[in-house]
Design a binder for these strands. Structure first.
Length: 671
DNA sequence: GGGTTGCAAACAGAG
DNA sequence: TTTGCAACCC
């Protein structure tokens, strides 16, 4: 095919309203002003990656690119939202029209538009990881694999296998051989189960996260009309956090940019921390080879952290193998020496963090300039209690999500069958709430519902069992009343929540708290236009638990941030605490038998450290309390070779009335 | 047969 | 805090 490029009268730099030259360094400016063709921006931590993307969005719009023809792909929805908001502030509201979001979001919107081309209706629903696992579990029990008591992999393992195979584009047998040799004897059964899983998803009009990417890729690959239609609207494509994209996403970028070829990817290979999800930082190394005439721009000056924090980061990275050589430097002064805090117990660690935060707040620091970072969601539990006691408001990112809690899933299942009556797993959940109904009866009822003219008002004639006939009538009534208020998402949700109240009471000891959660959920559900969009948004961007909690509280002080390191990616704070830096936590105990995985844990630790602008505390408890008992623990191996001149040891001393003279460099704890 | 209940065991990271 | 499994009731 021939291509004719329509030229446009570019604005001259002088006519821009934004003084780009003053706001950006030369490398950033080059990236922002780049006209057309592929570009790779290799950007170290804190070198103004976000700033560059933000200004580029504004610049493109100023130069006359229709904002609706710009696609900004980011790692989280929040990141896209914040960047476009910033762009809007420096330019104007046109920036809101830019398409921004994650790969999953964008693919989902493409698929809704073209669902018929791939044999789906447009009301397909999205399975989150837990839903997918339930489907797998259901199919597994149907297939009934049992053989001499040999262990068949758990549903979560099966899910990782299926998902890994898709995202890395490796066949299942090969993947088993490489990563799960202990399950190789089950290869045939696992492959068979995967086939059933695929069949299930097409039969029941559901897609999992991976399907959003795969189906979009397949659609664009197999249907040239659609590919042209989609990619001709993507005049400029920007991809953030490119080091954490996988093979499949790489292919998508190629398809999206196939008409215009204007694609800028931005990333930092040493911040690649998502290989467990199939991310391959070699995408970055490959990029210049895949795209001919690709320009490479490096951002190296760090604008975030003081040099003492960078010294620690650089020192740590010296241990990393397989990376681009890169030394971060900054002009922000030396700053204070990062501290390595040894606490006696987990609770002492929490008291230290809490008291430091209180002290900083006293000195005028804002809580939202401070973050506490950790490896696993549960590593902050003790601290959360301590913060609550001291009435310090916080928001937590990562870990268990609000929408993953059992009571929320119960309620959502009702909405899901309402939108997509073929969703068997949700029906099962709905039915199994009823007294006397287990998996077997639930499947029977599902069949009855499917064979009825309206599955939401199933034909109950054939049901002889009086015991649940009444309950099923109540359920049918619920769906009928929901239909009546269709259009008001909050009202529909409220009906479900009221219906659910008695089940909640029966199922949970802490039912008042759970009901309060659900009521808050009703309150915030007004922001979703339709039930379908509520379900979609929630699957692709689950609500954090603390959002629901803080919605209820009246405190308007900007809160402290607690976050897993993974969720803290791309963000920065004046002060950061990294807690639970124990060997076995970071690096995670799961990673110890593979060198590649330990390297990834090291990069993760690097990401954590480079979140801090001014002050950094790394802490660990000397005695670690696990559910199984207490044991003495060793600080992270990554700290082994760090000299005290780079990371200063702190010790915590209990305040005592007859000893007021504390030595220099020591800090005290008070009750 | 099918549903419920109680106990032992394991527990990442996220779209 | 959830999940798998075995023993126990309708």
């Amino acid at each position: 095919m021939k291509k004719f490029v329509l030229s446009r009268d570019e604005n001259s730099p002088e006519s821009f309203t934004i003084p780009y030259k003053e706001k950006l360094n030369s490398a950033q400016l080059e990236a922002v002003m780049h006209q057309s063709g592929p570009v790779l921006v290799a950007a170290g931590a804190g070198t103004g990656k976000t700033r560059t993307l933000t200004y580029r969005v504004a610049r493109l719009i100023e130069s006359g690119t229709d904002p609706a023809n710009i696609l900004l792909l980011t790692f989280t929805r929040r990141a896209a939202f914040e960047m476009l908001q910033r762009a809007g502030e420096i330019l104007d509201q046109r920036c809101r029209l830019v398409k921004g979001g994650t790969f999953h979001h964008y693919c989902s919107s493409v698929l809704r538009k073209h669902s018929n081309e791939i044999g789906y209706p447009d009301n397909f629903t999205i399975l989150d990881a837990a839903d997918s696992m339930q489907v797998i579990q259901f199919l597994r029990s149907q297939l009934n694999f049992k053989k001499g008591g040999k262990r068949f992999p758990q549903k979560s393992t099966l899910y990782s296998i299926f998902s890994g195979s898709v995202n890395r584009q490796i066949e299942i047998p090969k993947l088993l051989e490489n990563e799960y040799p202990q399950f190789m004897e089950w290869t045939d059964q696992i492959v068979q189960l995967n086939d059933h899983y695929h069949q299930y998803k097409t039969d029941h009009f559901v897609m999992d996260f991976d399907d959003l990417l795969v189906n979009t890729r397949n659609l664009l690959q197999n249907n040239d009309n659609v590919r042209q239609q989609v990619s001709s609207k993507l005049v400029q494509i920007l991809v953030d956090e490119y080091q954490d994209t996988n093979r499949l996403q790489d292919e998508l970028v190629q398809l999206f940019s196939s008409v215009h070829g204007n694609v800028m990817v931005v990333g930092d290979d040493v911040q690649s921390i998502y290989s467990f999800r199939g991310a391959d930082h070699k995408n970055m190394l490959r990029f210049p080879k895949t795209y001919q005439n690709c320009k490479v721009i490096k951002l190296e000056e760090n604008y975030r952290s003081t040099s003492r924090i960078l010294d620690l980061a650089n020192k740590l990275l010296a241990e990393a193998t397989d990376k681009f050589e890169k030394d971060l430097y900054s002009d922000l002064g030396k700053g204070s020496l990062p501290g390595l805090v040894k606490a006696a117990t987990v609770n002492d660690q929490s008291r230290f963090v809490t008291q430091m935060i209180l002290q900083m707040r006293e000195e005028g620091k804002e809580l939202n300039d401070i973050a506490v970072l950790f490896r696993n969601g549960r590593d902050s539990f003790d601290l959360e209690v301590e913060l609550n006691n001291k009435k310090i408001p916080f928001r937590k990112f990562g870990g268990q999500k609000f929408t993953e809690a059992a009571h929320v899933k119960d309620v959502l299942s009702h909405l899901r069958v309402f939108v997509n009556p073929k969703d068997l797993i949700s029906w099962n959940r709905v039915f199994m709430l009823l007294e006397g109904i287990g998996p077997k009866t639930a499947s029977e009822l599902f069949k009855i519902a499917q064979n009825s003219t309206n599955p939401l008002q199933p034909d109950l004639e054939s049901i002889t069992n009086e015991r649940y006939r009444e309950q099923l009538k109540a359920l049918a009534t619920l769906f009928r009343t929901m239909k009546n208020v269709e259009g008001s998402v909050s009202e529909m949700l409220e009906l479900v929540v009221e219906y659910y109240r008695s089940f909640c009471k029966k199922r949970f000891d802490d039912y008042p708290k759970r009901m309060r959660d659900l009521e808050t959920f009703v309150d915030i559900s007004g922001r979703y236009g339709t039930v379908q969009s509520l379900l979609e948004e929630i699957a692709l961007d689950p609500i954090e638990s603390t959002v629901i909690d803080s919605e209820a509280s009246e405190n308007d002080e900007a809160p402290l941030t607690l976050s897993t390191i993974h969720s803290a990616k791309g963000l920065e704070w004046d002060t950061a605490f990294i807690i639970q830096c124990l060997d076995g936590i970071i690096p995670s105990g799961y990673s110890l038998d593979s060198d590649d995985q330990i390297q990834e844990e090291l990069r993760l630790f690097y990401v954590a450290i480079t979140r801090a602008k001014n002050q950094l505390f790394i802490s660990y408890p000397a005695l670690y309390q696990s559910y199984y008992g207490d044991y003495f623990s060793k600080p992270s191996r990554f700290l082994d070779n760090i000299p005290e001149s780079i990371l200063e040891p702190w010790m915590l001393v209990e305040e005592s009335h007859n000893d007021n003279q504390l030595e220099e460099g020591k800090n005290k704890l008070t009750e």
